[in-house]
Amino acid sequence: MKSDHELVPVHEIMDEKEVRSLFEKMNITQNNLPKIFTSDPQAKKLSAKPGQIIKVHRTDFGNEYLYYRLVVEG
């Protein structure tokens, strides 16, 4: 998978099952997550709706990990 820009990691909408297991594993609710606006270019591209969770495949200096953002209206 390749995103459309060097500095943009791959974004992906999570399905509900995945979200539930994530919350259980991390012992959090969706309010603990960082946010992303629906007007964000990347969220627009995925046509994400408020309440959904976007999984971000980040790479920081060769260190690969996942980051999650809650889609909010804005």
Binding site: L7, V8, P9, H11, I36, P41
Partner: peptide, 14 residues
């Protein structure tokens, strides 16, 4: 400008 064009993740890297 990066945020507007490419989104919040790119803004963070920038």
């Amino acid at each position: 400008a990066m945020y507007k064009q490419f989104g919040i993740e790119s803004a963070r890297y920038t």
